[in-house]
Design a protein around this nucleic acid. Sequence first.
DNA 1: TAGATATATGTCCGTTTGCGCATGTGTCCA
DNA 2: TGGACACATGCGCAAACGGACATATATCTA
Lengths: 109, 109
Amino acid sequence: MSDVFRLLAEPSRRRLLDALRLGERSVGELVDRTHMSQPSVSKQLRVLLDFGAVRLRKAGRTHLYSIHGRPLREASEWLAYYERFWEQGLGRLDKVLTEEARPKRSGDR
Amino acid sequence: MSDVFRLLAEPSRRRLLDALRLGERSVGELVDRTHMSQPSVSKQLRVLLDFGAVRLRKAGRTHLYSIHGRPLREASEWLAYYERFWEQGLGRLDKVLTEEARPKRSGDR
DNA sequence: TAGATATATGTCCGTTTGCGCATGTGTCCA
DNA sequence: TGGACACATGCGCAAACGGACATATATCTA
């Protein structure tokens, strides 16, 4: 994995990053929060770790993961804002943006 | 394709979007600029079109494509800024960012 | 130390997807 | 109208990748 977009292309990894949003989590907690199997969680964490997107701190037999790196922080903010629109399709974005923040400014498209 | 990250995960599509950055381009121009085969260009353009990421304007026998949609514009700016760092690996990002803009502020890690 | 707990890894399999190649469709022009 | 030109599409294939399942490794505790 040498490409952030590929990294983020996988929903399971985005779910993990989302679950790590608020801070350090153990693998078990991530399994609970994401409803993924434990092996899947571990594997995707490995991918994220190799990429440098998360950090690992071992505390006894539990492994604590946390988000690392400015790029992912930026990406996380970026996706947090747009994901809700995108997941409903692109068509509604302009509408929602207009309603939400800028009732004017239609000279964009 | 129902996921922007998957859409952007493919380097060929990012190359196309990049080639469309400055405006409308014909398929032939995109073939030249991206060094992709014509069928590949057409296919990926189709994916981008179905997603709503580009627009098509037909002028005779040439098809002019252009980027469409605020999300991709945002994504484009976002990637334009970070891509150069990411493509060289994540490790250099903090360094470059520090050198570039903020010689102080090291409490970020 | 034995067993339980927490996590990691190996293997197999099915799916997805991009590309190459050939061909089809639409448009312009002599 | 026939042929050149611009682009799109269908097909087959190979590579990438995630998940399920079983199992290995490490740590804690009785």
